[in-house]
Design a protein around this nucleic acid. Structure first.
Lengths: 155, 155
DNA sequence: TTGCTTGCAAATTTTTTGCAAAAAC
DNA sequence: GTTTTTGCAAAAAATTTGCAAGCAA
Protein backbone atom coordinates (compact mmCIF):
# COMPACT_ATOMS: atom_id res chain seq x y z
CA UNK A 1 0.00 0.00 0.00
CA UNK A 2 2.62 2.47 1.03
CA UNK A 3 5.28 3.02 -1.54
CA UNK A 4 8.87 3.80 -0.62
CA UNK A 5 10.10 7.32 -1.15
CA UNK A 6 11.96 7.94 -4.36
CA UNK A 7 15.69 8.24 -4.09
CA UNK A 8 17.15 8.46 -7.54
CA UNK A 9 16.94 11.14 -10.11
CA UNK A 10 16.24 9.60 -13.47
CA UNK A 11 15.73 10.94 -16.95
CA UNK A 12 12.15 9.69 -16.85
CA UNK A 13 11.28 11.50 -13.66
CA UNK A 14 12.88 14.64 -14.93
CA UNK A 15 11.00 14.56 -18.21
CA UNK A 16 7.67 13.88 -16.58
CA UNK A 17 8.12 16.95 -14.47
CA UNK A 18 9.35 18.99 -17.41
CA UNK A 19 6.31 18.01 -19.42
CA UNK A 20 4.06 19.43 -16.77
CA UNK A 21 5.97 22.47 -15.58
CA UNK A 22 4.34 25.74 -16.52
CA UNK A 23 1.31 24.04 -17.98
CA UNK A 24 -1.99 25.42 -16.85
CA UNK A 25 -4.28 23.10 -18.81
CA UNK A 26 -4.30 20.34 -16.17
CA UNK A 27 -3.49 17.48 -18.54
CA UNK A 28 -4.36 13.83 -18.08
CA UNK A 29 -1.75 11.17 -17.51
CA UNK A 30 -2.04 10.07 -21.10
CA UNK A 31 -1.27 13.51 -22.48
CA UNK A 32 1.77 13.72 -20.24
CA UNK A 33 2.82 10.33 -21.49
CA UNK A 34 2.42 11.56 -25.07
CA UNK A 35 4.68 14.51 -24.42
CA UNK A 36 7.38 12.61 -22.60
CA UNK A 37 7.23 9.86 -25.16
CA UNK A 38 8.46 12.29 -27.81
CA UNK A 39 11.65 12.77 -25.87
CA UNK A 40 11.99 9.30 -24.40
CA UNK A 41 10.40 6.92 -26.92
CA UNK A 42 10.99 3.88 -24.75
CA UNK A 43 9.17 5.17 -21.69
CA UNK A 44 6.08 3.28 -20.63
CA UNK A 45 2.79 4.62 -19.39
CA UNK A 46 3.29 2.78 -16.12
CA UNK A 47 6.48 4.70 -15.53
CA UNK A 48 4.72 7.95 -16.18
CA UNK A 49 2.14 7.02 -13.58
CA UNK A 50 4.82 5.99 -11.12
CA UNK A 51 6.67 9.22 -11.60
CA UNK A 52 3.56 11.32 -11.34
CA UNK A 53 2.93 9.67 -8.00
CA UNK A 54 6.45 10.36 -6.89
CA UNK A 55 6.11 14.00 -7.81
CA UNK A 56 2.82 14.25 -5.95
CA UNK A 57 4.44 12.72 -2.90
CA UNK A 58 7.32 15.12 -3.12
CA UNK A 59 4.79 17.92 -3.31
CA UNK A 60 6.07 19.15 -6.66
CA UNK A 61 2.77 18.69 -8.43
CA UNK A 62 -0.77 17.84 -7.44
CA UNK A 63 -3.63 15.72 -8.58
CA UNK A 64 -6.96 17.09 -9.60
CA UNK A 65 -9.93 14.81 -9.89
CA UNK A 66 -12.97 15.72 -11.89
CA UNK A 67 -16.02 14.01 -13.16
CA UNK A 68 -16.00 11.47 -15.92
CA UNK A 69 -12.40 11.01 -16.80
CA UNK A 70 -9.30 10.11 -14.93
CA UNK A 71 -6.98 12.23 -12.86
CA UNK A 72 -5.51 15.48 -14.12
CA UNK A 73 -2.17 16.82 -13.02
CA UNK A 74 -1.22 20.27 -11.98
CA UNK A 75 2.25 21.77 -11.54
CA UNK A 76 0.84 24.56 -9.39
CA UNK A 77 1.03 23.63 -5.76
CA UNK A 78 0.23 26.93 -4.15
CA UNK A 79 -3.14 26.96 -2.55
CA UNK A 80 -5.70 28.09 -5.01
CA UNK A 81 -9.04 27.18 -6.46
CA UNK A 82 -10.43 25.86 -9.71
CA UNK A 83 -13.18 26.65 -12.10
CA UNK A 84 -14.63 23.73 -14.05
CA UNK A 85 -16.56 24.40 -17.21
CA UNK A 86 -19.40 21.93 -17.44
CA UNK A 87 -19.69 22.52 -21.15
CA UNK A 88 -16.24 21.95 -22.48
CA UNK A 89 -14.51 20.44 -19.49
CA UNK A 90 -11.72 22.95 -19.23
CA UNK A 91 -10.34 23.69 -15.83
CA UNK A 92 -9.05 27.13 -14.97
CA UNK A 93 -7.03 28.23 -12.00
CA UNK A 94 -8.75 30.79 -9.84
CA UNK A 95 -6.89 33.00 -7.49
CA UNK A 96 -9.69 34.31 -5.34
CA UNK A 97 -8.05 36.37 -2.68
CA UNK A 98 -11.16 37.60 -0.95
CA UNK A 99 -12.88 34.25 -0.94
CA UNK A 100 -10.03 32.61 0.83
CA UNK A 101 -10.40 34.62 4.00
CA UNK A 102 -13.97 33.69 4.55
CA UNK A 103 -13.22 30.14 5.55
CA UNK A 104 -13.00 29.85 9.28
CA UNK A 105 -10.51 27.25 10.49
CA UNK A 106 -11.18 28.19 14.09
CA UNK A 107 -14.70 26.87 14.05
CA UNK A 108 -13.44 23.63 12.60
CA UNK A 109 -10.72 23.35 15.22
CA UNK A 110 -13.37 23.77 17.89
CA UNK A 111 -15.10 20.75 16.48
CA UNK A 112 -11.92 18.74 16.70
CA UNK A 113 -10.79 18.89 13.11
CA UNK A 114 -7.19 19.44 12.25
CA UNK A 115 -7.10 21.22 8.95
CA UNK A 116 -4.17 20.87 6.61
CA UNK A 117 -5.53 22.27 3.40
CA UNK A 118 -8.66 23.01 1.48
CA UNK A 119 -9.77 23.33 -2.05
CA UNK A 120 -12.60 25.15 -3.68
CA UNK A 121 -14.17 24.02 -6.92
CA UNK A 122 -16.46 26.38 -8.77
CA UNK A 123 -18.69 24.96 -11.49
CA UNK A 124 -20.33 26.71 -14.39
CA UNK A 125 -19.59 27.91 -17.88
CA UNK A 126 -16.32 29.39 -18.99
CA UNK A 127 -16.00 32.60 -20.97
CA UNK A 128 -15.75 30.85 -24.30
CA UNK A 129 -18.75 28.62 -23.84
CA UNK A 130 -20.82 31.45 -22.43
CA UNK A 131 -20.04 33.57 -25.47
CA UNK A 132 -20.75 30.75 -27.88
CA UNK A 133 -24.03 30.13 -26.18
CA UNK A 134 -24.99 33.77 -26.39
CA UNK A 135 -24.44 33.62 -30.16
CA UNK A 136 -26.43 30.49 -30.82
CA UNK A 137 -29.28 31.29 -28.48
CA UNK A 138 -30.14 34.99 -28.61
CA UNK A 139 -31.52 35.90 -25.23
CA UNK A 140 -35.22 35.47 -24.70
CA UNK A 141 -36.16 36.52 -21.23
CA UNK A 142 -32.89 35.42 -19.73
CA UNK A 143 -30.94 32.35 -20.55
CA UNK A 144 -32.08 28.96 -19.54
CA UNK A 145 -30.73 27.98 -16.17
CA UNK A 146 -27.88 25.55 -16.16
CA UNK A 147 -28.50 22.20 -14.66
CA UNK A 148 -27.21 22.01 -11.19
CA UNK A 149 -23.86 20.35 -10.93
CA UNK A 150 -24.27 17.18 -9.01
CA UNK A 151 -20.83 15.78 -9.34
CA UNK A 152 -17.74 16.88 -7.56
CA UNK A 153 -14.43 15.36 -8.00
CA UNK A 154 -11.58 16.77 -6.04
CA UNK A 155 -8.45 15.60 -4.45
CA UNK B 1 -23.00 10.13 -23.70
CA UNK B 2 -26.42 11.41 -22.82
CA UNK B 3 -28.77 8.87 -21.43
CA UNK B 4 -32.54 9.19 -21.73
CA UNK B 5 -34.42 10.39 -18.68
CA UNK B 6 -35.93 7.70 -16.50
CA UNK B 7 -39.66 7.22 -16.77
CA UNK B 8 -40.63 4.20 -14.74
CA UNK B 9 -40.56 3.62 -11.05
CA UNK B 10 -39.07 0.25 -10.29
CA UNK B 11 -38.36 -1.68 -7.14
CA UNK B 12 -34.67 -1.46 -7.91
CA UNK B 13 -34.63 2.29 -8.22
CA UNK B 14 -36.63 2.64 -5.05
CA UNK B 15 -34.35 0.40 -3.06
CA UNK B 16 -31.20 2.08 -4.28
CA UNK B 17 -32.55 5.37 -3.06
CA UNK B 18 -33.73 3.86 0.22
CA UNK B 19 -30.30 2.37 0.81
CA UNK B 20 -28.77 5.82 0.62
CA UNK B 21 -31.38 8.01 2.23
CA UNK B 22 -30.34 9.40 5.57
CA UNK B 23 -26.86 7.99 5.27
CA UNK B 24 -24.07 10.41 6.03
CA UNK B 25 -21.15 8.09 5.46
CA UNK B 26 -20.93 8.69 1.71
CA UNK B 27 -20.80 5.05 0.67
CA UNK B 28 -19.30 3.61 -2.49
CA UNK B 29 -21.39 1.99 -5.18
CA UNK B 30 -20.38 -1.42 -3.99
CA UNK B 31 -21.62 -0.81 -0.45
CA UNK B 32 -24.93 0.40 -1.81
CA UNK B 33 -25.10 -2.72 -3.92
CA UNK B 34 -24.44 -4.81 -0.82
CA UNK B 35 -27.30 -3.19 1.03
CA UNK B 36 -29.79 -3.38 -1.80
CA UNK B 37 -28.75 -6.92 -2.51
CA UNK B 38 -30.05 -7.98 0.88
CA UNK B 39 -33.53 -6.91 -0.13
CA UNK B 40 -33.36 -7.72 -3.82
CA UNK B 41 -30.98 -10.66 -4.14
CA UNK B 42 -31.22 -10.73 -7.90
CA UNK B 43 -30.19 -7.14 -8.50
CA UNK B 44 -26.97 -6.63 -10.40
CA UNK B 45 -24.23 -4.15 -9.77
CA UNK B 46 -24.82 -2.66 -13.21
CA UNK B 47 -28.38 -1.85 -12.24
CA UNK B 48 -27.20 -0.16 -9.08
CA UNK B 49 -24.90 1.99 -11.14
CA UNK B 50 -27.64 2.79 -13.61
CA UNK B 51 -30.02 3.74 -10.86
CA UNK B 52 -27.46 5.83 -9.06
CA UNK B 53 -26.98 7.75 -12.28
CA UNK B 54 -30.71 8.21 -12.64
CA UNK B 55 -30.97 9.56 -9.13
CA UNK B 56 -28.11 11.94 -9.73
CA UNK B 57 -29.80 13.19 -12.87
CA UNK B 58 -33.04 13.67 -11.03
CA UNK B 59 -31.12 15.64 -8.44
CA UNK B 60 -32.11 13.33 -5.60
CA UNK B 61 -28.55 12.40 -4.69
CA UNK B 62 -25.12 13.52 -5.68
CA UNK B 63 -21.76 12.07 -6.48
CA UNK B 64 -18.66 12.79 -4.52
CA UNK B 65 -15.34 11.98 -6.08
CA UNK B 66 -12.23 11.70 -4.02
CA UNK B 67 -8.73 10.57 -4.51
CA UNK B 68 -7.84 6.93 -4.72
CA UNK B 69 -11.06 5.03 -4.88
CA UNK B 70 -14.18 5.28 -6.94
CA UNK B 71 -17.20 7.53 -6.56
CA UNK B 72 -19.09 7.97 -3.32
CA UNK B 73 -22.75 8.81 -3.14
CA UNK B 74 -24.50 11.34 -1.02
CA UNK B 75 -28.21 11.78 -0.36
CA UNK B 76 -27.66 15.36 0.75
CA UNK B 77 -28.14 17.73 -2.14
CA UNK B 78 -28.22 21.04 -0.35
CA UNK B 79 -25.14 23.11 -0.93
CA UNK B 80 -22.61 22.27 1.67
CA UNK B 81 -19.01 21.32 2.09
CA UNK B 82 -16.99 18.29 3.02
CA UNK B 83 -14.19 17.40 5.31
CA UNK B 84 -11.94 14.55 4.21
CA UNK B 85 -9.82 12.80 6.79
CA UNK B 86 -6.51 11.89 5.22
CA UNK B 87 -5.90 9.30 7.90
CA UNK B 88 -8.96 7.13 7.85
CA UNK B 89 -10.68 8.31 4.72
CA UNK B 90 -13.94 9.28 6.30
CA UNK B 91 -15.86 12.14 4.78
CA UNK B 92 -17.95 14.43 6.94
CA UNK B 93 -20.49 16.97 5.89
CA UNK B 94 -19.62 20.47 6.92
CA UNK B 95 -22.23 23.11 7.20
CA UNK B 96 -20.10 26.20 7.41
CA UNK B 97 -22.45 29.06 7.59
CA UNK B 98 -19.88 31.79 7.28
CA UNK B 99 -18.06 30.03 4.53
CA UNK B 100 -21.20 29.64 2.55
CA UNK B 101 -20.91 32.89 0.72
CA UNK B 102 -17.20 32.72 0.41
CA UNK B 103 -17.06 32.96 -3.32
CA UNK B 104 -17.66 36.22 -4.97
CA UNK B 105 -19.71 35.48 -8.08
CA UNK B 106 -19.48 39.10 -9.11
CA UNK B 107 -15.76 39.06 -9.60
CA UNK B 108 -16.06 35.83 -11.53
CA UNK B 109 -18.87 37.22 -13.67
CA UNK B 110 -16.64 40.17 -14.51
CA UNK B 111 -14.16 37.71 -15.86
CA UNK B 112 -16.84 36.10 -17.99
CA UNK B 113 -17.61 33.05 -15.91
CA UNK B 114 -21.15 31.89 -15.35
CA UNK B 115 -21.25 30.23 -11.96
CA UNK B 116 -23.80 27.55 -11.21
CA UNK B 117 -22.46 26.12 -8.00
CA UNK B 118 -19.38 25.60 -5.95
CA UNK B 119 -18.03 23.23 -3.39
CA UNK B 120 -15.38 23.32 -0.75
CA UNK B 121 -13.32 20.35 0.30
CA UNK B 122 -11.34 20.65 3.51
CA UNK B 123 -8.57 18.15 4.15
CA UNK B 124 -6.97 17.13 7.40
CA UNK B 125 -7.53 14.84 10.33
CA UNK B 126 -10.91 14.06 11.83
CA UNK B 127 -11.66 14.18 15.54
CA UNK B 128 -11.14 10.47 16.03
CA UNK B 129 -7.80 10.28 14.29
CA UNK B 130 -6.57 13.43 15.98
CA UNK B 131 -7.47 11.98 19.39
CA UNK B 132 -5.85 8.66 18.62
CA UNK B 133 -2.76 10.46 17.55
CA UNK B 134 -2.69 12.51 20.71
CA UNK B 135 -2.74 9.30 22.72
CA UNK B 136 0.14 7.71 20.92
CA UNK B 137 2.20 10.87 20.86
CA UNK B 138 1.85 12.71 24.17
CA UNK B 139 2.26 16.42 23.70
CA UNK B 140 5.62 17.98 24.22
CA UNK B 141 5.46 21.74 23.99
CA UNK B 142 2.31 21.86 21.96
CA UNK B 143 0.69 19.12 20.00
CA UNK B 144 1.62 18.01 16.60
CA UNK B 145 -1.98 18.75 15.82
CA UNK B 146 -1.54 22.43 16.46
CA UNK B 147 1.51 22.50 14.30
CA UNK B 148 -0.44 21.02 11.48
CA UNK B 149 -3.29 23.42 12.01
CA UNK B 150 -0.89 26.25 11.55
CA UNK B 151 -0.15 24.97 8.13
CA UNK B 152 -3.40 26.65 7.25
CA UNK B 153 -2.69 29.69 5.19
CA UNK B 154 -5.11 32.42 4.34
CA UNK B 155 -3.53 34.36 1.59
C1' DT C 1 28.57 -3.26 -7.00
C1' DT C 2 24.11 -2.40 -4.88
C1' DG C 3 19.52 -1.95 -5.06
C1' DC C 4 16.29 1.58 -6.92
C1' DT C 5 13.83 2.27 -11.25
C1' DT C 6 12.24 0.92 -15.70
C1' DG C 7 9.74 -1.53 -19.51
C1' DC C 8 6.68 -4.85 -20.61
C1' DA C 9 2.73 -7.35 -20.14
C1' DA C 10 -0.65 -8.93 -17.39
C1' DA C 11 -3.71 -7.92 -13.55
C1' DT C 12 -6.89 -4.96 -10.96
C1' DT C 13 -10.43 -1.92 -10.12
C1' DT C 14 -14.30 0.61 -11.22
C1' DT C 15 -17.80 1.59 -14.31
C1' DT C 16 -20.29 0.92 -18.71
C1' DT C 17 -22.57 -1.59 -22.50
C1' DG C 18 -25.13 -5.05 -25.62
C1' DC C 19 -28.83 -7.84 -25.67
C1' DA C 20 -32.64 -10.88 -24.64
C1' DA C 21 -35.96 -11.42 -21.05
C1' DA C 22 -38.86 -9.30 -17.43
C1' DA C 23 -41.43 -5.59 -15.60
C1' DA C 24 -43.98 -1.11 -15.96
C1' DC C 25 -47.46 1.56 -17.63
C1' DG D 1 -49.16 -4.55 -26.05
C1' DT D 2 -45.46 -1.38 -26.20
C1' DT D 3 -41.49 0.55 -24.30
C1' DT D 4 -38.46 0.91 -20.47
C1' DT D 5 -35.57 -1.43 -17.24
C1' DT D 6 -33.14 -5.42 -15.65
C1' DG D 7 -29.64 -9.21 -15.28
C1' DC D 8 -25.88 -11.20 -17.11
C1' DA D 9 -21.66 -11.37 -19.07
C1' DA D 10 -18.37 -9.17 -21.49
C1' DA D 11 -16.07 -4.72 -22.59
C1' DA D 12 -13.83 -0.49 -21.48
C1' DA D 13 -11.09 2.79 -19.27
C1' DA D 14 -7.80 4.01 -15.94
C1' DT D 15 -4.32 2.66 -13.05
C1' DT D 16 -1.32 -0.69 -10.70
C1' DT D 17 1.75 -4.63 -10.17
C1' DG D 18 5.34 -8.55 -10.81
C1' DC D 19 9.52 -9.33 -12.43
C1' DA D 20 13.82 -9.44 -14.97
C1' DA D 21 16.89 -6.20 -16.85
C1' DG D 22 18.79 -1.43 -16.78
C1' DC D 23 20.89 2.33 -14.65
C1' DA D 24 22.15 5.80 -10.89
C1' DA D 25 24.94 6.38 -7.01
Amino acid sequence: MRRAARRRRTRQLEQVFEALKGDHTHPFAHEIYRRVHQRLPRISLATVYRNLHSLVEEGKIRTLLLDGQGARYDPETREYDHFVCERCGRVDDLFLRRARRRIDPISLAKRGYVVTTHNLMVHGMCQGCAARRRLSRPRVRGTQALTRASVWRQQ
